[in-house]
Structures are given as structure tokens and as C-alpha cells.
Design a protein around this nucleic acid. Structure first.
Length: 106
DNA sequence: ACTTTGACTTGCA
DNA sequence: ATGCAAGCCAAAG
């Protein structure tokens, strides 16, 4: 099995690509899932470097900050993300995603 | 090889 | 609830 310590980007993309519709994960959860417990920032970074080509198949909008926060990157990004999530039936509590309903735990 | 940076998180005031 | 500081890890310059 290939386990190159590098290519963290692809690992993030693969995982995020597997997030079901209507479900969301936090940067921290994704980080742990790919084996980088404290690499939440790296996840955001990987998504930030997400090429247009992969942008279609990687549901980056399903990755939110801790507590369901929408990261304030730049431009209309946050708005688009919120719109897409709502389009999938994701519920919001104020400005945050309702993780008690769409998060991974239960 | 060193410094800077970032779509984060947590803790404390 | 709001804000600031420190911690963390990988990539880019």
C-alpha cells in the first residue's frame, strides 16, 4: 500500500470527496482522519490549493470550522459555501452549521 | 536551510 | 458572546 508521507493534499481531497451529501466534517476531524492530529490548518491549506480541475469533484463546502463555523476566507467564498450547504438540506443555527445534526458524532 | 504564512483550534481574559 | 495569544504542521519563497 502506498504511504508517501508527502502528497497530503491528495489525501485530503480523497477523504473530502467521500463526505456524503448533507453531511459535514470539521477541519480538525479531517486532519485526524488523514493522520495529522493537529493539522487542521493544513487541511484548510490543502483546500485552498484545490485546483479548479478537482474543485468539481471535491465537495470542499462540506468542510467547516470547529463548532460548525464557516471559515472567513476571501470574497464570496463563505457565501457560496453556505448556499451550497443549504441546498443540500444542511441546517444552520445562526451563522453556524448544526453539527448536532450533520456532524459525525451522535 | 531558514523564515513566513495560513479556508484551524483551544484556552483564557 | 468577543477578542487576543499560543500551539501545530506542512508548503512556498
Amino acid at each position: 500500500m502506498r504511504t508517501p508521507p508527502t502528497g497530503l493534499f491528495d489525501r485530503v481531497y480523497e477523504l473530502v470527496r467521500g463526505i456524503p451529501r448533507g453531511r459535514v466534517m470539521t477541519y480538525g476531524q479531517v486532519a485526524r482522519a488523514i493522520g495529522v492530529p493537529r493539522g487542521a490548518r493544513e487541511v484548510g491549506w490543502a483546500l485552498g490549493a484545490l485546483p479548479r480541475s478537482r474543485e468539481r469533484r471535491v465537495p470542499w463546502h462540506r468542510v467547516v470550522g470547529a463548532l460548525g463555523r464557516i471559515s472567513p476566507r476571501a470574497g464570496t467564498g463563505p457565501l457560496v459555501q453556505r448556499r451550497r450547504l443549504r441546498a443540500e438540506g444542511v441546517r444552520f443555527v445562526g451563522e453556524k452549521v448544526d453539527l448536532t445534526r450533520h456532524g459525525l458524532f451522535a
